[in-house]
Structures are given as C-alpha cells and as structure tokens.
C-alpha cells in the first residue's frame, strides 16, 4: 500500500477531528489572548508582553473607574433583565394564548427592534429623550436596554409556550386545579427553563451593549463604554481580568448546570 493512500485514509478518518480543533482554535484564540494578557505586568497599555504577574488579579480595581463602570453595568443589567423578563413573559403568554385584534401585527412588530440597526435605534432614542427633556443617566439606559431585549425575551418564551402540550393544562384542570393553580403548578414550571434562558440572554445583551448605551447614558460610565474609551490610550490589564473573570463565571455556571442535570439523572 502506498503512503499516499495511507495518508488519505488517515485524513478521511480524522477530518472531522481536525475540523473541530481548527474551529475551536478560531473561536477561542481571542479569549485565550485575553486570559493570557490579564497576567501581563501592568503599564499604561497592555499591548505587548512584559512578563507574568498576579498583581492584576489580586487587585482588579487598580485602574481608576474600572470597577465603578463594572458596578454600573451589573446594576443596569440586573434591573433591565428583571423588567424585560417580566414584561416579555407576559407579552409572550398573551401572544401565545389569547386571540385578540392586532395579534398578528404584534407578532410581526415584536421583531422590529431586532431588525433595526442599533445605531439607528440609538439615535432615535436619544432624539426622543432630548425632546422629552429626560435627564440622561441610569433611567434612560435601563429604558433603552429593556426596549431592545424585550423582543428576545418574547420570542424565546413564546417558543417554549408553543412547545407545551395544551393537554397537560387540561389534565390539571380535569384534576381539580383552577386556572391559577394550573398556571402555578403546571404551566409556569414547564415554561420556566425558557424564561431562565431568556433572562440570561437579556442580561448578556444588556451587559454587552455599547452602541445604544453610548448614546443615551449621559455621564454614567458602563464597562463596555470604559473599555471603548480607554482603547484610545491603552486598556488597563484590569479590564482583561474582569473579562476573563466573566468568561470563567459563565463557564462555571454552564458546568454546574450540567453537573446538576447529570447527578439528578443518575440518582433516579
């Protein structure tokens, strides 16, 4: 057998693995870069490798304002997530369950904020706020974030409700559960994973948002805004630490959820 054929066989067997490794490398290189540079010895900027240190991790609030901005982002994220999730879930139930005039139109309009370019939304929101003489700040950011994340919540929760077998609720009513009991014991627990997913999505959309926030935030600083502004004069390594920490936290949550599911499946 010639080596050419052998090589081709080997390639045939391992093509998928190679493809997988390359794809992962593509996705994770920037993240790995962030992590590595979070251990870089601090200077005004963090663009060249100067040597390993734990200093950034032990004191991540070293750079002026970085933790202040992070705190603002977290506050805004939580507030807008709670509001968008509650409102969006209610809209989703209304759209999925009730026939009313304008339902089809609403279903379409819900997609509009997703389809509109963010800068356009941002500019028009700013115009709106200025015309109404609303003081730019926390309130305007939260209003803006709720506005663009609510569509995502509605779509995610609605999909979950649609996949629910209506006979389950009928069976509950047949078994003497009134409307509210049926909702509390059957509907809500079964839709809950969809709502949780929607909330996570809303939070990450809010935490991540730069464009709209930049327009409507006035002098409130958020983490993305901080990173963007400091990019001009050099991003401090602390921002890399915070970025890495967020990533690790997200991974930990996913792993914990998997572990929990696995344990529960095993214990049955």
């Amino acid at each position: 057998m010639s080596t050419g054929i052998k090589a081709r066989r080997w390639l045939g067997r391992h093509a998928l693995h190679i493809y997988g490794v390359l794809a992962f490398a593509y996705i994770f290189t920037p993240i790995a870069y962030v992590m590595v540079f979070s251990f870089n010895r601090p200077a005004r900027s963090n663009l060249t490798w100067r040597g390993f240190t734990l200093e950034n991790w032990t004191n991540p609030c070293n750079a002026p304002d970085v933790c202040n901005a992070l705190g603002n982002s977290l506050k805004i994220g939580v507030a807008s997530t709670v509001i968008a999730t509650v409102l969006g879930t209610m809209v989703a139930f209304a759209l999925a369950r009730y026939r009313f005039r304008g339902r089809t139109t609403t279903n379409l309009l819900i997609f509009l904020p997703m389809a509109t370019p963010e800068v356009v939304l941002a500019a028009s929101l700013l115009t709106l706020f200025l015309n109404m003489r609303v003081q730019l700040g926390f309130t305007t950011i939260i209003i803006a974030h709720v506005m663009f994340s609510i569509s995502f919540v509605v779509v995610a929760v609605k999909a979950r409700i649609a996949s629910l077998d209506p006979r389950l609720e009928q069976a509950a009513q047949d078994l003497y559960a009134g409307e509210f009991e049926t909702f509390r014991r059957i509907t809500l627990p079964l839709v809950a994973p969809g709502i949780a997913g929607a909330a996570l999505l809303a939070f990450s959309l809010s935490f991540d948002d730069f464009i709209i926030t930049n327009f409507v935030s006035g002098d409130v600083n958020t983490f993305p805004k901080f990173v963007y502004v400091s990019a001009g004069r050099g991003i401090p390594a602390d921002a890399y630490v915070i970025g890495s920490a967020m990533f690790l936290l997200a991974m930990a949550i996913v792993l914990a959820a998997e572990l929990f599911r696995w344990r529960r499946a095993k214990n049955l």
Partner: peptide, 27 residues
C-alpha cells in the same frame, strides 16, 4: 372542568413531565 366530579384518562396519557409518578397520582 375542575368543578365537575368527572375525571379523564386521556388518549395520550398527558402525564405531567416535571412531576414524579407519585406526584402525578397525588395531584
């Protein structure tokens, strides 16, 4: 339905997937 002394065994069972068998029966 919950005001009637009538119960149904559904054609497709309609068991509550998130509850244990015991809790289904106890519902």
């Amino acid at each position: 339905p919950y005001q009637r002394p009538v119960n149904t065994v559904f054609q497709n069972y309609a068991l509550f997937p998130h509850l244990t068998i015991f809790e289904n029966v106890a519902f």
